[in-house]
Write a protein that binds this DNA or RNA. Structure first.
Lengths: 216, 216
DNA sequence: GCTAAAGTCGAGGCAAGCCTCCGCTGGGGC
DNA sequence: GCCCCAGCGGAGGCTTGCCTCGACTTTAGC
């Protein structure tokens, strides 16, 4: 975490030198991860400091801005997610992709902050999106080449669809799984791909009009 | 809006008697709709009063709590959505259902507050969910009976899926449409329904385990 | 017109959260 | 063991938003 992460992102914070300070630094990161997960990006910094057993001044010493703190937490989370893409690489194309997506969902479902972040627009968030694309897109492309994924969908499309679903409220885990299964069936290649076009104005489902990944 | 809405919900506020007061009441409702749409449930009441050209005291006179104000706005919005279910009833089963869902998406996509509300748990929100179910479920059931919708999906499943997608950020309208099309393809009945089950633990996609609508 | 009832308004008290500042403390190099 | 400076912490000033209250204004019925 000190200077570079596996995502290749520079962080604006440095892990301190002294042992006691390093303990505090780590405690703050833990408390922040917890708080951001539960309360979203707006979690109270004062509460985070308290949860870490540390004064508010110490929080600010280590993370001069809320953004710096959030970025540090966030990069760690995204890192973890990216790494899990390697673990599934040996599965058959569709299974690899679907399994990764399911991890993605499990991972962000309970973390309000990650979803908020994915929908935001800032340097750091763009970088994290980019890291996710680097990790996940090969799985997607492989599945698409194996004709397991419909050809008129882009990786970015699927990622956004899944992240929307992941962040919605569900009655229980079973429902989330069921809904995810439905959505993934839509992603799979099958003969009736253009069936819904009947109700859509004709421009909607034609392939090729897809905007570049990560634009905006 | 005064006492009963088309959703059958009682509102805790009364439209005032005097002409000037009624003007203020309506201005507040408009300003609030606007503010909730843009900033979500947490929009500043002081700003809303100002936007309505009215003192903060007047806001509180008409809507004693933030909840009262929000409910009044929200019920109006949901009402409108419910009414639109009638307009599509004459289309063929699938088209009727899909068209309504698309309206649903168009409607809530830009309204943060509605999505937040749909994920909340309170008397009013439950009532509004219920109103939406009353309006939309017949369309769903009809499509399912016509074998246009897979049999292992519930209306609540689809509603939550769609509302998640609607609230996600997209690059542009085209992407939203495209993603919605993908998701709806998953909802349609087709022979390979259980295809993704391979990667899912066996309990996940079996039908019949669906919990009651609106529970929790 | 008059007047009572209805309605308006915003100052101000309160709470929560942000962030700075500076006197104090104790870790660790010598 | 000493000492110095990295690090600590929390009081306090600031901002933002909530909500109340009571002195004032306007409407509408007569």
């Amino acid at each position: 975490m000190t200077e570079k992460s596996a995502t290749g992102l520079e962080l604006p914070v440095r892990r301190p030198q002294r042992a006691d300070a390093r303990r505090n630094f780590d405690a703050l990161l833990d408390a922040a991860r917890e708080a951001f997960a539960r309360n979203g990006i707006g979690a109270s910094l004062e509460d985070i400091a308290q949860a870490a057993g540390v004064g508010i001044g110490t929080l600010y010493r280590n993370f001069p801005t809320r953004q710096a703190l959030f970025d540090s937490v966030f990069v760690g989370e995204v890192d973890e997610l990216c790494r899990s893409a390697d673990e599934v690489a040996s599965l058959p194309p569709w299974e690899a992709f679907a399994t990764w997506l399911r991890r993605f969902v499990d991972y962000i479902a309970t973390k309000r902050a990650i979803h908020e972040a994915l929908n935001q627009d800032s340097e750091m968030f763009r970088s994290c999106r980019a890291a996710l694309v680097v990790a996940g897109e090969p799985l997607f492309v492989r599945a698409q080449k194996a004709a397991a994924v419909r050809s008129d969908a882009g990786f970015d499309d699927v990622l956004r669809m899944i992240s929307g679903i992941a962040s919605a409220a569900f009655v229980d885990e079973g429902q989330r799984e069921r809904v995810l299964g439905i959505a993934l069936d839509g992603v799979r290649a099958h003969p009736r791909t253009a069936a819904t076009a009947a109700v859509t104005s004709s421009r909607d489902l034609v392939s090729g009009g897809r905007p570049p990944l990560l634009s905006r």
